[in-house]
């Protein structure tokens, strides 16, 4: 599992590299979801980076589309495109726009950015696969603030009614949205319980613990009559030295902050590697 931790730290580094090239961005939400990305792309998902549109691949819909840069970093490290491309984030004519765009970026399975819509598309992918009797999985990552949208709950009711057990949805429960704490702005209460009531097999894990994430996915795959929901208990801005501030949704930063963050992550990586 340590190599997945290294991968996750590397995703953080490369996300920051992409964001630095633009002078900042959605640091908080990118940093909170790198472990699940490492698990999905490093271990769980059936993919072929040399053939991003391979018909038999598993698919991921990043419903919290503003965190595109973390996904781009993951895809670059997996070889979907050169890591240098990360430096073109948001540049004119880029293939890496601020929000996920399936028509621009190899490896992005669905266009997102308008919160609440991605999960419905993931449900549609899962429905389509089940109609076609295919055994691939569809993964989806929601933000916790995103769960304010009614559409999320429409999709949830639909997915459970249709018994889409090939759908595994994550909620990046970092407890914050743009303006502040989710509990102050629009209280989600017990997210796991809510999805359970909506007919999901629901679990909560430490979202920064790759072993826990993997075993939750295993359990989800062993559930045959229900879609699954995994609440990732995370920290917004995790492991990013300059993101430990109250307003860390959108952060502008420069080389000084970047160097500091990279030094911390490099240190973390060398410690992990010495344990390998």
């Amino acid at each position: 599992m340590d190599n997945l931790n290294v991968f996750s730290a590397d995703i953080r580094k490369h996300t920051l590299r992409a964001l630095l090239a633009f002078g900042g961005g959605h640091v908080g939400g990118c940093m909170s979801m790198t472990e699940v990305l490492a698990v999905l792309y490093g271990e769980v998902m059936k993919i072929d980076p040399t053939n991003p549109s391979w018909e038999d691949r598993d698919m991921l819909v990043v419903s919290k589309g503003h965190c595109g840069p973390a996904v781009y970093a993951t895809l670059a490290l997996k070889g979907y495109f050169p890591v240098e491309t990360l430096d073109t984030l948001n540049k004119e004519g880029t293939i890496l726009p601020s929000h996920c765009d399936k028509n621009l970026t190899p490896g992005i399975d669905m266009t997102t950015g308008s919160l609440g819509q991605g999960i419905s598309c993931a449900v549609g992918l899962a429905l389509g696969l089940s109609i076609k009797n295919k055994d691939n999985y569809v993964y989806c990552i929601l933000g916790d603030g995103e769960c304010d949208e009614g559409q999320v709950w429409e999709a949830a009711l639909f997915a459970s009614t249709k018994k889409l057990s090939n759908l595994i949805v994550f909620v990046d429960w970092n407890k914050k949205q743009l303006d502040g704490f989710t509990s102050d702005i629009c209280d989600l209460g017990d997210v796991e319980k809510k999805f359970e009531d909506f007919g999901f097999f629901a679990q909560t894990v430490d979202g920064h613990n790759v072993t826990e994430i993997i075993s939750a996915i295993d359990k989800a795959k062993n559930t045959t009559d229900k879609p699954s929901l995994i609440v990732l208990d995370t920290v917004k801005g995790k492991d990013c030295t300059f993101a430990n501030i109250p307003q860390n949704h959108l952060i502008r930063f420069g080389t000084a902050e970047y160097d500091d963050a990279i030094a911390f992550l490099d240190d973390k990586i060398s410690k992990l590697e010495s344990e390998l």
Partner: peptide, 9 residues
Amino acid sequence: INCGIQEAN
């Protein structure tokens, strides 16, 4: 009033 991310509502 911050509604959260729920424009229709």
